[in-house]
């Protein structure tokens, strides 16, 4: 997930598929891994309930859709 010369993922109306690794239920956050294995903290308020192993489409730190 980078804002390099190639592609600005956050502002390009772009979604990144990620897999849920761990949940922080109290704060409504999930630790997720993208396709390259990099870890991200993701807000899950829009797609709850989620469980470890679920696949989410993530944009700008927020899961938009459960895949």
């Amino acid at each position: 997930m980078s804002c390099g010369a190639e592609h600005c993922i956050t502002c390009g109306d772009d979604g990144v598929p990620m897999r849920v690794l761990r949940l922080d239920d109290e704060r409504g956050l999930a630790l997720c891994a993208d396709g390259e294995g990099a870890h991200h903290t993701v807000e899950t308020a829009l797609v709850e309930p989620v469980a470890p192993g679920d696949e989410l489409l993530v944009h700008a730190g927020v899961a938009l859709v459960a895949l």
């Binding site: 807000e43 700008a60 730190g61």
Partner: peptide, 17 residues
């Protein structure tokens, strides 16, 4: 904050947080 409705919920949730 910039973006269409894709990004606006992310900003809104962060402000609520």
């Amino acid at each position: 904050a910039i973006g269409f409705e894709t990004t606006a919920p992310s900003t809104a949730l962060t402000l609520k947080r």
